[in-house]
Design a protein around this nucleic acid. Structure first.
Length: 291
DNA sequence: CACTTGACCTGTCCGC
DNA sequence: TGCGGACAGGTCAAGT
């Protein structure tokens, strides 16, 4: 599921509600999902909620941090709270049987965090690829995955020349595949890679080494614009993604190409095409993205 | 080395 | 309806 915008939406939702709360109890329903000793963090207070690329983190008051990776189907949903509606119903979530009546926990629930203030945080993950990990805060940067990340695209310092240099690490790859390498840019995944290339009017099959400077500049803008638009619409909910309140994101209603195979291009009316690149479904407009 | 493919899992959807 | 296969927002490791 989640690429940078989706994880950012979750972060924003959690940040408003859980800073300063205590983790009272952790219930692990799928052992493989939780890495580390839950006893080390029970009773500790959440000091901050952060995001790096597609990883969500929480720093605690004992120099330990929690890391969450949602991979393809993860959800983090916060339920309850004294001053809000209580109960375990929520309005979004998985649209079918998996959600049952909308009660939590459900069959995808892997870890439950009971927090102070009567809140419960559910880590759901249908496919069990995602994980929650306890790490020393001081060792965060050395963590596998975090240590190899490229620049954050929405932070200061990222520019088209850096994007060009990093993409040129993969001269022979289709540019779309290179764009999804997390050491090139942090947080761009399959949906936003297709969208960014559409905005830049670049054929996703092109070799990264064949792009002109003007094309690198357009791709830089396309990355920024697609991610920003994703955040503005609350993220992409193809099947699983929901925000911290359990609500779906609307970005796919506004996407130009992703998941729109056979539908007319919103710019030129040509039919959107779907191909496979690097083993992943790739959508583009054969007319707007001829070059 | 640079790049591609399979594995990890569960579930849905589509064609026969 | 049932059954098999393809496919799904991501990373790793093993192949070529």
């Amino acid at each position: 599921m989640p690429e940078l915008p989706e994880v950012e939406i979750i972060r924003l939702g959690l940040q408003r509600k859980i800073i300063g709360l205590k983790i009272k109890k952790i219930e692990i329903l799928n052992q493989k999902t939780f890495q580390g000793d839950p006893k080390l963090i029970e009773g500790k207070t959440i000091k901050s909620v952060w995001r790096k690329a597609k990883v969500l983190g929480m720093d605690l008051d004992n120099n330990l941090s929690l890391m969450f990776h949602l991979k393809m189907s993860g959800q983090i949903i916060l339920i309850g709270g004294r001053q809000q509606n209580t109960g375990t119903r929520f309005i979004g979530g998985h649209p079918t049987k998996d959600m049952g009546s909308g009660e939590l926990p459900n069959r995808s629930t892997r870890v439950i965090f009971a927090l102070s203030n009567e809140l419960k945080l559910y880590f759901n993950d249908q496919r069990k690829f995602g994980w929650v990990r306890v790490v020393r805060s001081s060792e965060l940067v050395a963590q596998r995955f975090l240590s190899t990340l490229g620049p954050e695209p929405l932070e200061k310092g990222f520019n088209w020349e850096i994007l060009k240099t990093n993409l040129l690490k993969h001269k022979a790859m289709p540019v779309k595949v290179a764009l999804m390498d997390q050491s090139v840019v942090s947080g761009v995944g399959n949906i936003y890679a297709s969208e960014a290339l559409f905005l830049a009017k670049i054929d996703p099959k092109r070799k990264a080494s064949a792009l002109s400077d003007d094309e690198f500049k357009r791709l830089y803008s396309g990355v920024i614009e697609s991610l920003t638009k994703g955040i503005r619409h609350g993220g992409s909910s193809k099947t699983h993604f929901v925000n911290a309140e359990g609500e779906k994101g609307l970005f796919l209603n506004y996407a130009f190409v992703y998941n729109r195979a056979g539908k007319p291009c919103q710019v030129c009316k040509e039919k959107i095409k779907k191909i496979t690149l690097g083993g992943r479904g790739t959508f583009y407009c054969p007319d707007c993205q001829k070059n």
